[in-house]
Structure formats: C-alpha cells, structure tokens
Write a protein that binds this DNA or RNA. Sequence first.
DNA 1: ATATTTGTTATATATCTAATATAACAAATT
DNA 2: AATTTGTTATATTAGATATATAACAAATAT
Lengths: 131, 131
Amino acid sequence: MFIQIEPQSDVPIYEQVTRQIIEGIARGEMKPGDTLPSVRALAADLGVNMHTVNKSYHELEAKGIIVIRPKSGAIISSTEERALTPDQLRQIEKNLKPVVAEGMVLGATVEQIEHMMKKVFADLQIPAEGV
Amino acid sequence: MFIQIEPQSDVPIYEQVTRQIIEGIARGEMKPGDTLPSVRALAADLGVNMHTVNKSYHELEAKGIIVIRPKSGAIISSTEERALTPDQLRQIEKNLKPVVAEGMVLGATVEQIEHMMKKVFADLQIPAEGV
DNA sequence: ATATTTGTTATATATCTAATATAACAAATT
DNA sequence: AATTTGTTATATTAGATATATAACAAATAT
C-alpha cells in the first residue's frame, strides 16, 4: 500500500488515511469500482487499530467517495455517483480560504500561490493550465 | 470586532479566532503596527474564555504574524519581519494539497478550482490574475 | 503616586476526540 | 464448513478543547 502514516503529526491518523486514499484516487492509482483493502488488512499493514481505518472509511463514505457494502467491502464510487453539490463546492472554497489568507499574510505573492497550485495539480497528475 | 464565532463548528474556537484575524490582516482591515485587543477584551467581546483567545494569539505569534509584548499587548508584525521561509511555503503547499485532491475526486474541474481561487483572492481583496 | 490593565502562570474541572484493545455477531465469501 | 467481512459493544488511555478562578508582577493610565 502507498499509505504512509506520520505518527507524530497533528493530523489524526484516520484523517491521514482518508487524505492519502483521496490522493491515490486523484492520481488514478485507484479507479472507480476498485475495492479498498479490508479495514483489518489495512490496519495491520499500517500498524494501527482496525477502528481507526474504519473511521476513515466512513469519512470517505460520508464524502461520497466510496460505498461500504456491509460484510463485503468498500468500493470506490463512480464519478457519476459523485454529485458535486453546490454545498460541496462551497465547502472546498471554505477550505481554501484560510490557507490562501495565511500564505498572503506571510508574504507570499499571488504568483507564488498559483505556482504552488500548479505543483499540486502536477503532483496529482492533472493537466494544469498551460502545461 | 469583525470576528464571528460559530460555536458548533468542527473548527475549534481558538482556530476560528486565528483564521479570522489572519483574514482581517489579509483584507487590510488591520495593518502592521496595529495592536490587537487585549485577550480579556476580545474574550469578553466574543463571549469566550480568556485562555481561548490567549491560545489563538500564541498561535499567531508562532506563525510569525504578531508579536506579543508581555504585560503590554499584541502587535501585528511588519511584512519585513515576516520571513516566508521555504518551510512555510512547503507548509502552505501541504495544506493546499488535500483540499485540491478532494475537490478533484469529487468531480470538480481544474477550471472550477481555479475559479474558486479567484473568488478567494477577491474576497481577500487581492488583485487576481487577469481581473 | 495610585489604580487599572496587561500578559503570564497555576490549578481545577468538564467534555470531547483520538486511538487502542478485546470480543462477539451475523452475513458474505472462499 | 471455514474464513473473512463490516458491525456493534464495552472499556481504557491520552490528549485537546474550553471554561472557571485566582494571583502575580510589569506596563499603562489617571
């Protein structure tokens, strides 16, 4: 598995798992229809508790990114199943805001921030504007 | 004061205070050299405990955004005092990444995300590219 | 000079989150 | 038939969040 846990991060373990699975999907390393490892298997792999992975999976399900089939497994939902509601768009914007604001106050220029966005897109293997 | 607390947010109160002060500085509502209200005054204003505001101020100081002069007050540091170290730039990129990744996986296009960035810049009253 | 305000420090308490540990259940899969 | 699955339950530990109250000593205001 591609997931790497930083035990002393201020980001909770279940949140690290959630983020890295999302990034894996964004990169295309995992596609819709693919099954995630069982909570027990991934937990053993990462050296964490089963419930920690379970919490992450349910967070992913709440976001509409996976579907959990009880007693069976977790499947990455198709892009058609993912609505992208106005609420979700608003939430993304709400999440971007404090990061950008902090960057600006610390002295970053608009160009620097946009350059970082391009790096993030590139890291997610998404064709960025004018690349 | 311009700060509005959402008591039932999943974002801790001290973090809400920190973010809104940063946004206030980004918008130019507060300038370098300005003093923040005393922790007691702001706490009373917001209806929260003194220590909650104090924690926020120390977070701002750790980020290099304000300087706390004991027994005196908290002053917004000058842009010259703010280094913008490679570490800070890396941190900003690290903060942007999960937000962008989630947006993409939920089905947002690069254009939609860049449009949201422009809205954020506009909200922070920063002239965005080609506006 | 005196009184007030300031951030600091200390102690205490309550609540919530995060994480682990263990166990059992019943359905799905092998 | 045996194993694996997500689920549910209970319990414990540790840390974060937030409040409450109090006192201290330096800075500021009157």
